[in-house]
Design a binder for these strands. Sequence first.
DNA 1: CAGGCATATTCTCCTGAAGGCATATTATCC
DNA 2: GGATAATATGCCTTCAGGAGAATATGCCTG
Lengths: 119, 119
Amino acid sequence: MIETFTALAEPNRLRIVELLRGGPHAVNAIGAALGLNQPQVSKHLRVLKEARLVEVEPRAQQRVYGLRAEPLRELNQWLERYRRIWAERADQLDELIEELKSAEQEDRDGRRKIRRRKR
Amino acid sequence: MIETFTALAEPNRLRIVELLRGGPHAVNAIGAALGLNQPQVSKHLRVLKEARLVEVEPRAQQRVYGLRAEPLRELNQWLERYRRIWAERADQLDELIEELKSAEQEDRDGRRKIRRRKR
DNA sequence: CAGGCATATTCTCCTGAAGGCATATTATCC
DNA sequence: GGATAATATGCCTTCAGGAGAATATGCCTG
């Protein structure tokens, strides 16, 4: 998971991935499309390959790179575990704020101190 | 998007996010749970906050951090655009390999050269 | 097999970011 | 207001990794 995030965190690498979304490309095509020189493209592709985000197919002297499904599926699964958070309309702390407001309400007729509860 | 990936690419930051999945935590609680000293926790939280992945709620002297939904939704949307790839059973290059096999088939009774097509 | 392509690798330089430690800041309690 | 707790910030050092240029490797054609 970390490796996937790391690979996608680099701007040019993300651009490469976005480009490959349209289908497999050869190295020089990627460089031409994104205005990168060839060695950097190869290096970025290496990282992406190690993260298993792309795979290669030799085509004469060219190497055609295409996206792999697996890490994207894993990313989806990871995100799935957070669905409870992003599917609900409110953020986590909104509920907490509600709690606080009720607490303040109770405090109306008492001391102004707020007790902590996290251990 | 890049900012989200960058924030999640750091191991300790990812651990913090995973921890916060269970609900909001105060800074010291995070440090205790993950074995990090306080300044690093604050710094990581700063990055996460700038990436809008977390938000703060003051609670007396403590700061309670909780996850925000928005970037996770954006991540889901981003991933959605790749659904065509990871939803299908095969990777991009598998189709290409099929093409190649047919091409070789044609070459059986001709020259052995393979024409490129990507410009 | 010589020559030319397409790609990969190596080396060096340099910037950015993470960790550790000390200190500043903010809020609470007495 | 002074002491204390919780957190944030600043400084320093270290290290990973990205860019550039040169070179190596592999493959094809004549």
